[in-house]
Structure formats: C-alpha cells, structure tokens
Design a protein around this nucleic acid. Structure first.
Lengths: 341, 341
DNA sequence: TGATCCTACTAAACCGATATAGTACTAAAT
DNA sequence: ATTTAGTACTATATCGGTTTAGTAGGATCA
C-alpha cells in the first residue's frame, strides 16, 4: 500500500537547482556540466540512493541492464543437465557483479527462439543474448547479425566474421584426449554412446573415434536420445556380445551412471573387465562407486567467460574475434584401467 | 544494421484512422470503442504482427511481463542442486505458455535480496516474485507485503493473513512417512544427516525423528554443511561405531550417494546391514547401485504450481489463501530393507 | 569593438505505451 | 424543448529517463 514515490532525476534536478538534462549528463559522465555541478549532483544522487529506472532507460534505447537467454530444451530435462545449470550459475556470477540481470525463457523450437530474439530486440528488452548449441546450417547467427543484437555463441567452431562472436569449444581436441587416453591404456574395442547425432559435438566426437579406428582400434558410435532407459538397453546389448567392448564412453554423467549400473547388475567388474568414462563431469561422478573418469570442463567458468565476453561485446564498436573456452582436463578416477590381458 | 522501425500503436492508429487511445482501449479489451472499430483495430494489429512493448508498459506501471526470482545461494552450488533447477524448469514451463519471462538474479545475502526486491519494485521491472527458503523470523514477507509486490513463498508453514501467499510444503508429514517407513521395517537405530540447522525443513525433520525417539527408537540428527566431504567424514564416523546405526537418512540425493560410497568402501553391505534413504530425489538416485529409496517430490510440478499461483495472485484483488504443494511420495528402491535379525 | 568560439547550461522532444479529462453526437427521460 | 445519460471517441498528460537544439555569458581573436 505504502507506494513510496520513486526518487527520480527530476528530484535530483530540483534539489541541485539544475535541469533534468544536466543531471543526466552528470550521471552518465558526459560533457556539458562543470566539474563542480557534477559533484553536487552525484552527491545528491548518492545521498538519496537514486537508482536509474532500467525500464525508462530501455524505452529510449539505452541499456536495459538485462541479458537474455532463450533456452531451446525441453523444460523437464533442464534440471537434469549439470551443464546447463552450471552454465547459468556462471553467467549469473559475472552479471551479478555489475547488477545486470539475466532473463531466461524456455522455448520449444528454433523458430520460437528467433521470434523471442525479435521481440526482445524490438522492445529493447535485453542488451544482448547468449546462444547455445550451434548446429550445422544454424539460421540464428545470421538473424542476430542482421538485427544487430549483440550475442555470444557458446560452442561450435570459430565462426565467420559477420556472425556473432563465439566462445569456441575445442571438442575435437577434447575427444582426442579422452579416446587417446583409453587407447593409450591398451583398449582396442571402444564404444561411444552419444546423444542425438544432430548435435555438433556428438558428430565431432564420433569423427575422432572413427579416425582412431582406422588403425588397430575398433571404435563404434551408438546414438541415443540421452535417456537412461535407452542407454541401459544399449548397454545391456553391448555386454551380452560375445566380444564385449573393453571401454565404453558416454556423453554425460547421467548416462555413464546408468551404464555403470547395468555393468554392475550383469556382474561385469568395473574397471577390471570394463572401463567407463564420460564427456561430462558433475558432483556425483566422483561419489559413485567406482567413481567415473571424466573429461572435466569448468562449465561455471565457461558461463562466467561468456558473460564477460558479451559485456565486452556490448561496448565494442564491432564484432569481437572469437575466443576459446576453458580447456577440458581429463579427471582420471576409478572406472578406467588397462584392459584385462 | 537494418534497424527496422518498430510497429507501434501509433501506426495502428494511423492505419485505422483513430487515435492512439482508442487503439489502446481496443487492444486491452476495455470499453470505449465500438465493436466494429475494435475488430478493425485487432485485424490490423494482427496483420502487422504488432507486439506490445513491455518496456513501455512497465514504465507506465502496467504489467512488465516479467517474474523475478532472487536466489540467495552460492552461485557455484546452484547447478548441483536438483531441487533448484527442477523448480526453475517448472516455473518456466508455466510462464512460457503466457510469454512471461523469468528474471533470475543470484544474490549473496538476505539484505541484497531485499534490496533487489526494492529495486525491481520501484522500477516496476517485475510483476511479482517467487521467494524461496523461508526461515524463522524471516524479514522478507513483511517487506514484500509493505511494498505491495505480489509474491509467492515456497515452503514453510501456512503464513499469516498479511504475509504473501504461500505454497506450503508439509515437511512434517513427509518426514513422518520416511522415518515411519524405516521404523515399520524394524529399524531402531536411525541417524538423520541433515543440512544446516537454520533451514526450517531440517529442524522440522529433526523434530519428527525426535518424537519417534521417545519410544524404543534411538534417533539421532547430525547437521552438516551439505558438502559431500563433510557427509563422508560423518558417515565414516558412524560406521566405525561399535553399535552402527541400521538406517541413515540424508537431506538430499548427493549426500545419500556420498554416504553410499562410504558404506561400500568400508565394506558395509547395503541394504543388508545398512539401509539408506534420502529426502530428495533425482535421476541418479534410481541409477546408482543399489538404487536409493527416496521421498519423491515433483519439484517440477511445484515450480509450475508456484508460477500459476503467482499469476493468479497478480489478478487477484487481495492476498490469496495458502495452498499446499504436491505431496511427496515414498519411492522404495534397493537401498532399504528390514534390518538384520 | 565586433565577430567567433567555448562552456555550461535549459527547454523541449522523444521512446511506446496507459489513463484521464473533455467533446461531439445520439437517444431516452422529463 | 430541454435536460440527462450514455456511447464513441480525441487530445493530452504521464511514466523516467536520454538527446538534441537552442541560449546566455565569458574568453579569444582580428
């Protein structure tokens, strides 16, 4: 009920005995006021704890103080992916320092995602956006470019000059280090259980495995829908083969844990007869027994970096050159060892 | 570059040959225009895909189309808590249907959280907020009430009439069902490993266990900081006792998995010699071996309900009566059984 | 001494909506 | 015939900022 009236630049102007325009100049550090008046205005603003109305600012086309994040994933699965939540947390931690807020909206298709960008842009609701999961022939970069909406794309390969700046994740190198580690241990029958093939990282990893296979390694990639159910059934099939693989690699932590369970149920000792590893880490991979060897990417850090990058991009006159994200490191745990002789 | 000019109500007015005021009336379904004119205006709006500027709306004090969520948890741990991410996902799924977006900001103290509410409210940046983790003597409800900022509190007990509407989680009943189940199985030495005591649900659960202890059951509650490290060390202590507990209950999934690992390392067979259970469920609890008995709360649903509740509250003239959240159900899995005779 | 340039401001327009006061015009009531 | 009421509008103020055009006064220069 006690709707305290907002303390606006009008009030500051009155108290300082100047016009609202002058106050705006002073507060935004631009020429047009004497140093003396500027100080007087800043003091008053401070004293009365003036807060700019981001709404009003946004309306005139200045900064809205909001970053947008349209997530095109089924809402139900959002929470189960450690990657996603860690990323958000990281983004937040960068933004919070500058009092910039994050607007998240869940969309269910690329079209809806693009429509969201259009809406945000035309209403000047956000200053920039973070884009996830770039794909082959992705229409989003071009559209964001033509809108002139600052953006950072996370993942994928370095992009062309007109496209939005990219934080590039070197998935090939990552896959190299994980598969290479297993081959180095002596594994010769390796299966990679991936998510849907349309994701770029799944394809990249498969390619790396395929390259290795050219030599004396028998590599095989099996795509799933990420669901523990499908992973379990695939896993059961693998372990029933006459010649079982000696190592199985999963796209993420949940899949790996599902796979581990099947091995345990079927009495296949890990890591003695079967090595398991995951491309994604999380708290639980280190807590299950045996703990699971993972490629650990600092996703939180990736989020922080992406946010920082976007903030820099906002102030930049042109599209910034791509950067590479934090390098994943191999965290060797209990689930991998040399294969049985 | 191609900054297409926004299509505004001014344009509609021009095309329809009426004033902007009339257009506003027509678009908001309020009296003041004839049915005929209204249709003409709506047709034009539709045809040109007019989108209201939420920024402009917010400025004049109408709906901003944004719900705020200030999360007071360390950013780094956000991602690891299934509860939190599921909740957000659920909230999103309700909001997305109405094209309302969610603004999330991570704060590091209650004071900062309150300051955020003040800022949001004074700038009319959000239409309402969702509040988490009510505590004893919580200052937030009163402040939100005095600001007149619509809010839904998740958790805690039913609140007083002036306080914001609450989605009430019956933690006592939930604790009853979990502890009661273990006692029913025949367990007499039960330990509850909780998070920090200042959280209301930790206290409530402890109380329930204590009540049971009055009879022939030896119940014990040990508070931790939620970290797997501390949980592990507590667990090691418990299993080294001469008289080990026969059942251990954890506040959440990660803690339970950490506890399970310690049991496995120490060679204590689960569930034969030790039953384990958790107050929080997640995908992985069903995937580890043995899978863990949990109290399963549909957190996604809770998020959906909270968002719906908040949207209703926005349209309501007064504070709505409290509701109770989805009832948790006991999901019995492999980690619990009757204690050894 | 007047023309010119700066500096430090003010006044007013503007962004895109909503809200309110006021104005024609018609129809019913007195 | 005149008041009254209602309908369908228009004109205009408003929200809280930013921005542009304009202006007064002093210093600089020819």
């Amino acid at each position: 009920m006690s709707e305290a009236k907002r303390f606006t630049i009008g009030d500051i102007a009155r108290l300082a005995g100047v016009s609202r325009g002058a106050v705006s100049f002073a507060l935004n550090g631009r020429p047009g006021v004497s140093e003396e008046t500027r100080q007087r205005i800043l003091t008053i603003a401070d004293q009365y704890e003036w807060q700019p109305s981001s709404t009003a600012r946004a309306l005139v086309g200045a900064r809205a103080g909001v970053i947008g994040f349209a997530v095109n994933r089924p809402a139900r699965t959002l929470g189960t992916e450690a990657f996603f939540t860690d990323l958000i947390a990281g983004v937040q931690s960068s933004l919070a320092r500058r009092r910039i807020s994050l607007q998240i909206v869940v969309v269910s298709s690329v079209d809806e995602e693009i429509a969201t960008y259009r809406r945000w842009h035309s209403a000047n609701q956000v200053d920039g956006v973070i884009v996830l999961d770039p794909r082959e022939g992705d229409p989003r970069p071009a559209i964001l470019g033509s809108l002139g909406l600052p953006a950072i794309v996370i993942g994928g390969r370095p992009s062309s000059a007109e496209d939005p700046a990219t934080i590039w994740l070197d998935d090939a190198q990552a896959a190299q280090s994980l598969f290479g580690y297993l081959v180095g241990l002596g594994h010769r029958r390796i299966v990679y259980i991936s998510g849907p093939e349309e994701y770029e990282h799944a394809r990249l990893r498969t390619d790396v495995l395929r390259e290795l296979s050219d030599r004396d390694v028998a590599g095989e990639a099996i795509a799933t829908d990420y669901s523990p159910l499908e992973v379990s059934s695939v896993m059961r099939g693998l372990l029933s083969r006459r010649e079982r693989p000696t190592a199985v690699v999963f796209d993420n932590d949940v899949m790996a844990i599902a796979g581990l369970r099947v091995a345990q149920e079927m009495g296949v000792p890990v890591p003695v007869e079967l090595s398991l590893a995951s491309f994604d880490d999380s708290v639980v991979t280190g807590l299950v027994h045996p703990s699971i060897t993972c490629l650990t990417r600092d996703t939180f850090r990736l989020g922080e970096d992406a946010a920082e990058f976007l903030l820099e991009q906002l102030d930049a006159p042109a599209i910034l050159p791509d950067r590479s994200g934090p390098r994943p490191v191999l965290t060797v745990r209990e689930s991998t060892s040399r294969p049985q002789a």
